[in-house]
Design a protein around this nucleic acid. Structure first.
Lengths: 215, 215
DNA sequence: ACTTGATGTAGGCGGTGGTTACATCTTGCG
DNA sequence: CGCAAGATGTAACCACCGCCTACATCAAGT
């Protein structure tokens, strides 16, 4: 009963069974969440989109939650990388902090499915992140940029954790509102508009963080 | 036969078999979301908790989404009322703005199920809110308090909509993080702690909003 | 070649869910 | 008192899901 070539419509390179099903499953999950929402994420539908049987994913993920955990971890890696990349171009503490926040919002806009999984309420156990300073420690980058600003004397004194939470709240709120399309009434839809808005908002908060200088 | 004593005492309307099934369904939905999460919200389980058959809810809600819409609208009413109540005690523009933000976060902590439904991503059509100034126009309260502060000369000039979006982002982010239990690592769990944190955060942002002179 | 392990297929089991059609009961009213 | 109308119960339909087992296929090493 050899039926070969059933799944591929075009005779692409005769890959292995699938080539990299694990990657394909992750991508299918992200596309599915982006297009149909979190509630539509189903192992069977993910397999369908990847062009395999509904049992195949179990060769790569123990169960549905394991798939979600993988998505979340990948999300934290990508987000942290984006932040580092964006902060690298800035030298001043203010610039680095703003870049950090803008990167967060940009990540939400460009990877909404990752964002939803990472911060959504559907985990029995929070996916463990790497050690402080690791490639998933996004929050550490934020705290560091604040303490550096304080050491440089440009930021107000105060508990760094609390200040970091404030910054996080701001960008997480903006990111969430954007991802969930609650700001469309205000005309903010494109990535560029979101970036501009993030820039304005983070600068406004920055004004409350910095010491006596006017402006 | 004894169906009279099973329900509430405040008989504002003649009560039928169940008394007020509509109310009971809403309450069951809220409890279910709070306890088991949004994904566990199922019409059948809601009916189960309300003590009726799984088809009974259709006498009160056209479908599952209609139930959610009702929850969301109620949420906006309650949130707006909470804001007004909390802002009433304040006279200064700064005080009113802070009260507005703190009320938002408190609402999220005290009504997490409402909050999730109101701002969650699972609506085919956003539930229509009442007219500006109505009992569901929470965002209007925010914008008003900002324009009043500008008129009084204590807030920085600038597009009120953009400033309002910034305030909204901050409190929405904090509310979301609290509701989704992402701040437990920092030890913030109780309502009082959340209120204190909201107060600090809004005041920090306020410092960026106010003009040079005042503290 | 032949074995072996990873990978994917075929099919099924037990269960849930939204929804509808129709029967039954309760209530308020004429 | 009896009945229409509304509120709830019963039963059923159909789709889908998560997970599991048995089996086929393929790539590669010896």
């Amino acid at each position: 009963m050899a039926m070969r070539g059933t799944r591929k419509k075009t005779a692409d390179k005769p890959q292995y069974h699938h080539g990299d099903l694990r990657r394909a499953l992750l991508d299918a999950s992200l596309a599915l969440i982006s297009e149909e929402g979190f509630g539509a994420l189903t192992l069977r539908e993910v397999a369908r989109r990847a062009g395999v049987t509904h049992a195949a994913p179990y060769r790569h993920f123990a169960d549905k939650e394991a798939l979600l955990v993988a998505v979340a971890q990948e999300g934290f890696r990508v987000m942290t990388a984006r932040m580092k990349e964006r902060m690298a171009g800035e030298t001043s503490p203010e610039g680095r902090l703003v870049a950090c926040g803008v990167a967060y919002v940009l990540f939400a806009m460009e990877h909404p499915a990752h964002f939803r999984v990472m911060f959504g309420p559907h985990f029995t156990q929070p996916p463990k992140m790497g050690p402080p300073g690791g490639d998933t420690d996004a929050f550490g980058l934020l705290v560091d940029s604040i303490t550096q600003g304080q050491r440089a004397g440009v930021f107000h004194e105060g508990e760094p954790l609390m200040l970091a939470l404030t910054c996080w709240s701001l960008v997480h709120g903006l990111g969430s509102l954007l991802v969930d399309r609650k700001l469309e009434f205000s005309g903010v839809t494109t990535v560029q508009q979101a970036e501009a808005l993030a820039l304005e908002q983070t600068r406004l908060l920055l004004r409350g963080l910095t010491r006596a200088t006017s402006n």
